[in-house]
Every structure is written in structure tokens, then in C-alpha cells.
Design a protein around this nucleic acid. Structure first.
Lengths: 226, 226
DNA sequence: TTCATACTTCGATCGTAGTCGAAGCATCCC
DNA sequence: GGGATGCTTCGACTACGATCGAAGTATGAA
């Protein structure tokens, strides 16, 4: 009768609107304090605190104390992937929290998916990397080809440092707006950081949206031709 | 602030234990009546009825009237994929509803994932099909190669009939026990049906487990060498 | 028609979980 | 030290939703 893993547990964790709002806020990739998350969810600090401890107990969140602040973030990449997946499903059922607003196109164009680039730009980058055989699919795993390695090192990404991490370097993540894969993993994170460090793009405050500058778009398109 | 799809809605649908039990029961692939689902969930018929209408309104279930029975099933393949995905996540967090029981190994070996084969056997079949280049990955899509087409037609599967359906023929699904991909889609369904029709395997009653016969295992291993 | 089965709807109950006010720690700054 | 600020814990309130009994509808059988 009762077989397999307990989906009701995660379901109920995500099922509360306040918690869901916090989680989506954390999909922005930044670590947020309890107070920030409380305002995101539209609740008082006390209730937020109780929600946060539940999410942490459920393994969805991890926290880091810094002085008198407590920074929360998604516990692992997998949490972000799972959430993006759920969003994709919800979107396919037309479950939206609002009628598409002015922010919506910006989100679809480029946004943060926990720590990497998603949206149209994320998918374009992924497709380009595949087309140029810089990453390739081996069974279930995505791997950097030798050509890809030299390529990203030329961009200034420290490949050996990525390799030392326990996390997978390349990983696919299903995009909810495009319904296609894009690149996650430590390389996905490194690339997004690169774009921001080079001033090609900026994270918008209080949003998952990423705004590319005009020159940033040009550089991006040259780097990842379609 | 409130961006993107509403994950809280699906979360709350899945978050109720009774509903989660019904959904996992329906992952067995058979269409079940309201009464059967009520007993699966351990609740009375009245409450089951209310849960079922909520699940249907949420687009997770569809129903089909047949005489005085009402058969429920997962609305689409995507629902099954999403649920299996969630189970994978739950399993990776150690969220199990029971300490692994005697049924557990059987489930991990071979089980139904809504309408196709999952577990060790599902993954083995998938790997074998990939290794022999009968299916291949093109970007996000999985496709049958010409060699694969002749192969499955030789097995007695009507390829042109599959092609006429709106559903994708090949599709990957993430296995929660193996944490690897296996084959879903209409071909995945057709293959499982084939195994059962040929008497190689049987569905267990009231369980997702699939039991292969000795000769069935042999035939399966010959068909999909490792 | 009459009875039985399958299911839904209504109404009432009950529990639990989300919520906040108030008080209690902890950390930082002056 | 004293007084902010950030967060947690406690306790009480409340509301929502899960639950079931009882009555109502639909289909089928006799």
C-alpha cells in the first residue's frame, strides 16, 4: 500500500503560500535574511521564523550566521532544479499567480535560476554550447569536451577549481518559460558570474530578472552564436 | 514580488497525505475507481470524492465514466513525470514513508511508472537502447533512429500508429530509485505492454511492482544486452 | 417497480497549522 | 553600561480544510 518516497511531505512544505513565496524569492540566488524573506512573503518576522525552521528541517534550506544576521539559501542545486521543474509543470497547467505583468517578458528573456542563467538567454547559451560541441551528453551526464575546457579557460574560468568541487560541473535544468533545457551546475554558475563581473548583465533587485546591457547583449551573442 | 508560476497550488494538492496516496496509487498506471482510491488512501468515499474533484480541478487527474463506475487516472504523461521527479527528490532527502520493507527491492528492480517500465530494468533497457543507437538524444528531444524503427517494428510494435498520436514517442523520465533516466513516452508504454502481453512480466496487484518470470528475464536480457 | 450499488452533495465537527503579540536571547554600536 | 537591531520562542487566537454521517442522484439488476 504505502510504497516509495513521501511526496506529501515536500508537497506540504511547498504548498503553503508563504513558504512558496520564500522559496521563489530564494530562487533569485542571493542568500536572504529572515527579515527580507518575511517581507517577501508578506508575513511578520515571527511566522517567517517558524516557516524557515520547517523548511530547514525538511532539507530545502540551509542557513549561515553572519553577525546578527541569518542568511538563508536553497540547500543544494537539486532543490533549485526541483523547484524550477515544479514551476514548469505549474506553468504548463496555466497556474499563474497573476495575469502576466510587465515584468513577465523580462523574466522570460533572462533570469536567475538559483545560481545560473535561465530563460531565453539561458537556452540560447545551452544550444550554442551543444552545437559547437563544447559540451556533450553522455547518457545521463552532461560533460565538458576538451574543446569546451580550453574555451572556458580562455574566458578566465578556472576549470581545475570547478573540478575540485563535489558538485557536478555541467547539469541540465528544465526551463519553465521555454520548456527546454539550459545549463546548470558549477559551470552554469561560473558563467553567470562571469557575465555579471564583466558588466554585461545585472541582477534586478527583488526579482529573478536579469537585465543585459546593450553591449552585454552584443558580447553574449558573439560568444554564443545561434 | 510575485513572479512566475504558482508552485504553492500544486504543492498543496500533493501535500495532503490522502491525495498523495491516491496519486501514488495511480502511478501504478491502472485507472482506478473512486472506491478503490478511497481504500488506498484509507478514507471514506465521501472525503475521497471531494479530494478527487480537487485533483481534477487542478488538472492532475482525468476521469472517465463507465456505467456506474467512475475511473480516475493521471491526466497526462507529464503528471506522472512530475510525480516521479518529486519522488526522486524526496528519496534523495531520505523522506520515506516507511523503513524499507520487503516490497522495496522488488520496486527498485522493476515497477510501473504510470505507463512505462522503471527501476533497474527500466534503466537497463534505456541504456541498452542508447548504446545500440536505437534511440538518440537530439538537444532536448529523444528520437528513434531508423535502426530503432525497424527494430521495434520487428518486435511487433506499430510505429506508424505511435507516430499518429499527439504524445511524444520517446521521452526521458528520471528514476527515483536509480537516479538515472529511463524511457517514457508512447514507446515506453508500448514496450511495457509488449512485455506483459508476451507473458514476460506481470503487474502485481495493489502495487507498482512488476514481476518478471524467469523466462521473461532471460528474454529481456537478450533483447537488451548490457 | 423495487432494490442495490457507485458516487456526490450537504452539513456539522474537529484538529491542525498558520498567524501575530509579547517577551526573551543574541549581537552590534555608541 | 545602555540602547538599538535581528531573530527565536511562547502562548493564544483563528481559520481553513480534512473528515465523516446522512441524505440525494445516477446507473444497473431483478
Amino acid at each position: 500500500m504505502k510504497e516509495g518516497p513521501d511526496i506529501a511531505l515536500i508537497g506540504s512544505l511547498i504548498g503553503d503560500p508563504a513558504r512558496a513565496n520564500m522559496l521563489t524569492a530564494l530562487m533569485g540566488g542571493r542568500a536572504l535574511t529572515a527579515t527580507e524573506l518575511a517581507t517577501h512573503a508578506g508575513i511578520t518576522l515571527q511566522t517567517a521564523s517558524s516557516h524557515l525552521s520547517k523548511l530547514e528541517a525538511g532539507g530545502l534550506l540551509s542557513q549561515r550566521k553572519q553577525g546578527r544576521h541569518r542568511y538563508f539559501q536553497l540547500a543544494e542545486d537539486e532543490v533549485g532544479l526541483m523547484l524550477e521543474n515544479l514551476m514548469g509543470f505549474a506553468a504548463s497547467r496555466g497556474m499563474n499567480r497573476h495575469r502576466p505583468g510587465p515584468k513577465d517578458p523580462a523574466l522570460r528573456k533572462a533570469r536567475v535560476c538559483y545560481n545560473h542563467l535561465a530563460g531565453d538567454y539561458g537556452v540560447r547559451m545551452y544550444d550554442s554550447l551543444i552545437a559547437e560541441k563544447q559540451i556533450e551528453i553522455n547518457g545521463d551526464d552532461l560533460a565538458l569536451t576538451p574543446a569546451g575546457q580550453t574555451r572556458i579557460e580562455a574566458l578566465g574560468i578556472d576549470y581545475s577549481a570547478l573540478k575540485k568541487l563535489r558538485r557536478p560541473i555541467c547539469r541540465t535544468c528544465l526551463d519553465w518559460s521555454e520548456r527546454r533545457s539550459h545549463l546548470a551546475g558549477s559551470l552554469g554558475e561560473a558563467l553567470l558570474t562571469l557575465f555579471i563581473d564583466r558588466g554585461w548583465a545585472k541582477r534586478e533587485a527583488n526579482s529573478r530578472a536579469i537585465r543585459f546591457t546593450a553591449s552585454g547583449e552584443k558580447a553574449f551573442s558573439e560568444l554564443f552564436p545561434q
